[in-house]
Design a protein around this nucleic acid. Sequence first.
DNA 1: TGGGCTGTTTCAATCGATTGCAAATCGTGG
DNA 2: CCACGATTTGCAATCGATTGAAACAGCCCA
Lengths: 341, 341
Amino acid sequence: MMRSGQVTIKDIAKELNISCSTVSRALKDFPGISPATKKAVTDLADKYNYRPNAIALSLRNQKTNVIGVIIPETVHFFFSTVISGIEDAAMKEGYNVMICQSNESYEREADSIDALMGARVDGLLVSISRETADLDHLKKVKDEGTPMVFFDRLVEGMNASSVIIDDYQGAYDATEHLIEQDSKNIVHLTGPSNLIIGRKRKEGYISALEDHQIPVREEYIVECRKGTQEEAEQVMAKLLSTGMAIDGVFASNDVAALGALMAVKKAGLKIPRDIAIVGFSNWQFSSLVEPGLTSISQPGYEIGQQAAQLILEEINSKEKGKSQIKILDTELIVRGSSTRK
Amino acid sequence: MMRSGQVTIKDIAKELNISCSTVSRALKDFPGISPATKKAVTDLADKYNYRPNAIALSLRNQKTNVIGVIIPETVHFFFSTVISGIEDAAMKEGYNVMICQSNESYEREADSIDALMGARVDGLLVSISRETADLDHLKKVKDEGTPMVFFDRLVEGMNASSVIIDDYQGAYDATEHLIEQDSKNIVHLTGPSNLIIGRKRKEGYISALEDHQIPVREEYIVECRKGTQEEAEQVMAKLLSTGMAIDGVFASNDVAALGALMAVKKAGLKIPRDIAIVGFSNWQFSSLVEPGLTSISQPGYEIGQQAAQLILEEINSKEKGKSQIKILDTELIVRGSSTRK
DNA sequence: TGGGCTGTTTCAATCGATTGCAAATCGTGG
DNA sequence: CCACGATTTGCAATCGATTGAAACAGCCCA
């Protein structure tokens, strides 16, 4: 039988010459429907592969069972791992996921939020773009009462739940590890300074130095604004050419660490003998380069899961305003790039 | 002003003491609305940040402006690149994207399709899981008239549009490159045999050998079923231990190639001098290992874009049944692992 | 035969936005 | 002062599913 589109309750009602209400109740096993009717309805529903129209239900129930996700870029291993965690946790509770990537652009982030709000998502999971400084688009969401949870990138001044990793502690661990491997002149390559994660990592680096009575020198802290491998390589090459004493590098991400690694190699220095290197994020490639890159592993999947759970809690509870922050632990993954002992 | 939820046309109508129809027409710049009314409406809409309820529109127009995507795993670099292409192309046309990952499981794939069909997506982009052999769940979609486009993994017997890469030619190029670099005894590590892409790559390998008058020997073609690096490493180590003459490896994916690379290194052989290696997919890490891995680059972003464009065409044209297959070219990326000359 | 009762089924409104058609309002001319 | 266009606005139905309330059927007993 050829039909166009999916079957509705109305189609079934018409074919059986009964009302929509009866069909609806029969399908939902409501009391007060005769066994004969119930069987006729369920048989026909099976035959036509009836699926309740989620759109109609959304409109009636004022609930879409969809979670919106704003993410800087899906192509980053870390973020795609987060998505995986979100998807699994959401699907388990009968929610679908709508994903928009901001490509680290403020404008696209704002557009995406508008689109998701128009789609009436029940909640928003947001990791803001690097560019985002103005928070008006996020405040509107809050004002309209849509639950929102931030992940990975903390947003200050929003009073919203967040799931982040302990960037401070991770950076502290990384720096301390370098110190324990006898590095004393440790360069820190930072990311763009407007992201809180970058500041936290810098603080961890500084605290570790101070706790080990190593002077903190400003010229050893260098910003890599763009976050590309090439940029980090150039920055590192420049540092090396100054003749500064350098025996360790802590980069705030693995791409930068890799750039530094390349620069050190090209300068004819040995890793880890002359310069030990530690990155951050434990990307997929970190174990594959030569030597293997010591890094701080971020539990992306868990971040996604917890963020999804948090937003589902907020959606299902009526009390707003109780925001909580979950801080997940990082793990130091030691590989060849820093192992001297 | 505190309100719960987003503003509707009704709210605006009530506040201005006019009817919903008037508000709707004013917002859409319909003729026959007095300038005064129009201004009052648009001002209030701005003030309350009115967004049309996409759910209500979907129900009325029988069109959700949402594209569903079924993907094996988002954490694969290739697939996340595809998603990026899909998202960009879809957003440009005012569509949102709903993503479900099958995790290479048939059951989850079928569930996801059910969920997306329930959400009344306007079209489906599907890359089937490794496990999928039964096509009933896909045929139901077709029968109900929902446009569907396959990408990357071709499905036989479905008469649906597809966007794939030229696996045959890519494999041919890879193998021929090895031959030109003086490899004559070339091992081919294949993927699981139920995916068409694996078969095509094997055919490309065989054709290249035949075209260069090199005998095809079955014992040089070995299946890596699981697709992990460890498996490939074991398989390769075993081959080397037999004493077979081997001076080249063409792996059907980069993970396997990397495993082979490790095994060759551990056996004390030099790459590319003793054994040259070529992979497939040009993963992110391929350029970072030592030596850099020669590979076949797949245009993931373009696949996503074209797949999205195809599905949008099918959605917007009423004529069904004209399915087309787009085959995108691969590119040989030469790096150290195969460069002898 | 009618009142009461149980067991089934239908009616009508709802959610938000749109739209053909009808109606109300206005200004103006006879 | 009314009638007649012209302009502006409202009514009601629609999309699919749900649900409280009302209606209807059949049956028993007085």
